[in-house]
């Protein structure tokens, strides 16, 4: 395409480049710097070296607790949600007439799930005399104290995220539908059962989307905020006090910007290390069908 200079493309991406520098690159570097300072918004940031990090890892019991529940939350939520999403996608991937109806019904929670209104609903559903306990009692059981018990409270937050399995499921379903049907027929003629077919044909072929979903869901789960903030306020006994809540409180409640930045960086490094491990291990288990594009 002649006529315009070779910088024409740069003009088009200019808004992105400016935004990247101003709102991503600069804040990224700045937060790293801030994590080595003491900054209360009133006076200038004061360089304190690694003091924030030392405090985090040696004397901050809240951080220990928060890190622990964050890891528990992520490592239970992500596998549960993805397994469920894949299971439903496999069940749906069949010549069912109502496939679109089901797909829609399952997708609705994903659309609404991040909304405060849903967190409000959750708070009410799991209240002492809320929907779930009313159902349990009407079936003859004992009501459960959902928000008073640390394990139960974390479970309600986990369940909220698993409930939003729809978007992961739609991605799985699209991948399942693109698997070449003749492979199934060939395997079935060779006498393979449904489980063998799933294990040895379907699963390897959809590893790229499993990988994609795994990374995206993990990165998002580490940043969960709305659910615990509205439903449990981090309690009881900080059992749902995920790191993003701690960072928010430190930064925007106690205006301890330096310390909050240090926690954010710890969280970032954890996410990055896990992502890198996933990318590194993907060479061993993700199968790209004779295709070097990613």
């Amino acid at each position: 395409m002649g006529g315009e200079s070779k910088y024409a493309g740069l003009w088009y991406v200019a808004p992105y480049v400016i935004g990247l520098l101003l709102f991503t690159a600069f804040p990224f570097v700045a937060s790293f710097y801030l994590s080595f300072t003491d900054y209360d918004l009133l006076s200038k940031p004061e360089w304190v070296g690694t003091k924030n990090y030392e405090k985090l890892f040696s004397r901050d019991r809240t951080f220990d607790k928060s890190l622990k529940v964050t890891l528990i939350y992520v490592f239970t939520t992500v596998p549960l949600k993805l397994t469920f999403a894949l299971f439903i996608a496999v069940v749906l991937n069949y010549r069912l007439k109502a496939i679109n109806l089901f797909r829609t019904a399952y997708y609705v929670p994903s659309i609404l799930g991040g909304s405060i209104a849903i967190a409000v609903l959750w708070r009410y559903i799991f209240a002492d005399t809320g929907l779930v306990n009313m159902l349990i009692v009407s079936l003859g059981g004992e009501p459960i104290n959902w928000f008073g018990d640390p394990t139960n409270a974390l479970f309600t937050i986990t369940l909220l995220r698993c409930w939003q399995f729809g978007s992961a499921m739609v991605i799985f379903l699209a991948a399942l539908q693109s698997v070449d049907k003749s492979l199934y027929e060939a395997a079935s003629i060779d006498g393979a059962g449904p489980w063998q077919i799933f294990r040895n044909i379907t699963l390897p072929l959809i590893t790229p989307v499993i990988f994609f979903n795994l990374i995206m869901q993990t990165v998002q789960a580490f940043q969960e905020f709305n659910g615990p903030y509205i439903i449990t306020q981090g309690g009881p006994l900080k059992s749902t006090y995920l790191l993003p809540l701690y960072i928010y409180d430190k930064a925007f409640k106690s205006f301890d910007m330096g310390y909050a930045s240090a926690i954010a960086w710890v969280l970032f490094v954890i996410i990055m290390v896990l992502t890198l491990i996933a990318f590194w291990s993907s060479k061993k288990w993700v199968y790209y069908a004779g295709d070097k594009r990613s």
Binding site: Y16, L20, L22, F23, T24, F26, P27, F28, A30, S31, L34, I215, V219, F222, Q223, P244, I247, A251, F252, M257, A260, S261, A264, W265, L267, F268, I271, T275
Partner: peptide, 21 residues
């Protein structure tokens, strides 16, 4: 590549300086 990286970058790490900006 930076578009993809931003896709994966957790917002939590840029939020405080953005607020200050």
């Amino acid at each position: 590549a930076s578009v993809i990286a931003t896709l994966l970058l957790p917002n939590v790490v840029t939020r405080i300086p953005q607020y200050l900006l």
